[in-house]
Design a protein around this nucleic acid. Structure first.
Lengths: 121, 121
DNA sequence: TTGACATATTCCGTCCAACGGTATACCGTT
DNA sequence: AACGGTATACCGTTGGACGGAATATGTCAA
């Protein structure tokens, strides 16, 4: 790995990379499934084209944030063309680190009254 | 403006664009000041080079998210080389929209146990 | 008043992620 | 076998970010 294994060295993630890692956080998914999840989750606002997703996915594999996984028992019998991906331990750490970074920025935004303040402070 | 005035059409912002708009949220700043704020706010983690910042700033001006502002009364007497920038009404809307988008994603991350859950749910 | 250093902006070449679309192929249904 | 939906791969182009050099002004001290 050319970037070392320090999660912080991967930040900030591109918006799309964050979306993809987040989509893989709860369960392994195949490429097309990721496209669907991202589009639905954004309320159809973000349209993730195939050219974008598959090259991004390959990049994430190259960076060891994601790895291909053999179809699980649960997915056996499904479309054989599907290639499943899952987060690596490093990918999971990077996702958490980015989520914390964004959480801190949201806090800043609140302090600057960019967002309504839920705490009443 | 080539992109219309719908704030949602600007999303997602690049991580750097979000950082810069957020830096301008509370008060007008000059380029170098933005660089310092972003670096300090990230704990020295993000190093914003001049080439990156000034070209980004110009792009934001072209997109009508930011505009140059004459030095305010408060800043008069300061370094005359400084060029001050402020959010436009559109820029403010875009910043808010992006903050809300990120807030929603942070919620997803919590639901997926990527982040610790502050609500106890 | 000149020298040194920090501040501040501009400009340039390179790199790479994202974009948009096409090609290919397999799936299920009719 | 033909069709629409699913699924991945490939490719040329664009544009934001990168890294640094160039330029110039401000400040302060000797």
């Amino acid at each position: 790995m050319t970037e070392g294994t320090n999660p912080l060295s991967f930040l900030p993630l591109t918006p799309l990379a964050f979306l993809v890692l987040l989509a893989l956080a709860d369960e392994d998914k195949h490429g097309y499934g990721i496209i669907k999840e991202v589009e639905e989750r954004s309320g159809g606002q973000v349209t993730l084209r195939t050219g974008t997703l598959y090259t991004l996915l390959q990049r994430l594999v190259d960076e060891s944030l994601v790895e291909e996984s053999l179809p699980s028992a649960a997915s056996r019998g499904e479309d054989s063309r599907r290639r499943y991906y899952r987060l690596t331990a490093l990918g999971d750490e990077v996702l958490r680190a980015e989520a914390r970074r964004l959480e801190a920025l949201i806090g800043d935004a609140r302090r600057k009254h960019v967002l309504s303040d839920t705490t009443g402070a």
